[in-house]
Amino acid sequence: MSHQLRYTVNCSLLFTELPLLERPAAAQRAGFSAVEFWWPFVEAVPPDRQVDAFVNAVTDAGVQLTGLNFFAGDMPGGDRGLVSWPKRSGEFRDNVDVTVGIGERLGTQGFNALYGNRVDGATEQEQDDVAVENLGLAAQAAARIGATVLVEPVSGAPRYPLKLAADALKVIDRVQAPNIGLLADLYHLAVNGDDVDRVIAEHTDRVAHVQIADNPGRNEPGTGTLPLDHQLSALEANGYAGWVGLEYKPSTTTETSFGWLPFERR
């Protein structure tokens, strides 16, 4: 990889052979100084002792928590966020304070607000209006600690309406908060058929976080055909100076899946 961007390890997809609270230390031992997680608890408002245990695991490992997802429902069961889900809007709002509270303790700068699938019993207009309201509230909360809310196009979820960068940017434009930006997952965008090079050329200034995996397979860079190094270099040339989240499924073990990245670049 020829660019100089910094990497953060997504410990919800990597190091899954270890218990969750042991993963930050494993990332540190592998040479990384930063980690990110999806929502690491079962419910929207977990017990304080669970939150403390998570915060301590990150702190004790000596790594930075660069990113955290808001509670997104039952991800293994197919949920992809509560932001646009009218019946669960209250749950999302209750979760915002917990999430931002963790971020305040760990210096986290990015919070991914998964938009949510289309649901029966609500019109698309109703869902989109609820989403804009919820994203506005989340952005206000994140602004208190100088952090950003992220909106992400996602693949592999047929009822998730944000497929392309343009879909997410349209939502972001409606929210009109200064601290809300695009999460450009180069894997999801490619799978959904977006013109990733054009997105980078035209919208790097809107990109608040980047994640990568190769395609096909969503495994580590070098296992597929995506021009990730070229795209990361283009992002950097256009002024992107944020983190690059390694959000891939290791094709073998987590350790060997870092073979593409020299130790000194981690």
Rank of each mutant, 00 (worst) to 15 (best):
N10K: 04
N10A: 01
N10L: 04
L13A: 06
L14Y: 07
E17N: 09
E17D: 12
E17R: 06
E17W: 05
L18P: 03
L20D: 02
L20G: 03
F32E: 00
S33N: 09
A34N: 05
E36A: 06
F37N: 03
F37Y: 13
F41S: 08
P46C: 10
A53P: 03
F54R: 01
V55E: 01
A57C: 10
V58I: 15
A61R: 03
G62Y: 07
V63A: 06
F71N: 06
M75P: 01
M75R: 12
D79V: 06
D79N: 13
P86W: 09
G90Y: 09
G90M: 06
F92K: 06
D94G: 14
D94F: 02
N95T: 11
V96G: 04
V98Q: 12
T99S: 12
V100A: 04
G103C: 02
E104I: 00
E104S: 12
E104T: 07
R105W: 05
L106Y: 00
L106E: 03
G107N: 00
G107L: 05
T108M: 00
T108G: 05
Q109W: 03
L114I: 12
N117D: 12
D120G: 12
D120L: 11
T123R: 08
Q125L: 11
Q125F: 10
E126L: 09
E126Q: 15
V132P: 10
N134R: 13
A143C: 08
A143K: 11
V151A: 07
S155V: 02
G156Q: 01
A157F: 12
A157C: 09
P158M: 04
P161C: 04
K170S: 11
R174G: 14
V175D: 14
A177T: 08
A177Q: 15
G181L: 08
L183D: 00
A184P: 07
D185F: 01
L186N: 06
L189V: 00
A190Y: 00
V191R: 13
N192G: 10
G193F: 09
A201T: 15
A201R: 13
E202S: 12
E202L: 15
H203R: 14
D205E: 15
A208W: 08
I212C: 01
A213K: 07
A213Y: 08
D214T: 12
N215L: 10
N215W: 15
P216Q: 10
R218T: 06
E220M: 13
T225E: 15
L226G: 07
P227G: 09
L228C: 08
D229E: 14
D229L: 01
D229R: 00
S233N: 09
A234R: 13
Y240V: 03
G242W: 03
G242C: 03
W243C: 02
V244D: 00
V244P: 00
E247V: 07
E247R: 00
Y248V: 02
S251A: 12
T253I: 10
T253P: 00
T254G: 01
E255W: 10
E255V: 13
T256P: 00
F258E: 06
G259E: 14
W260I: 04
P262C: 01
P262F: 02
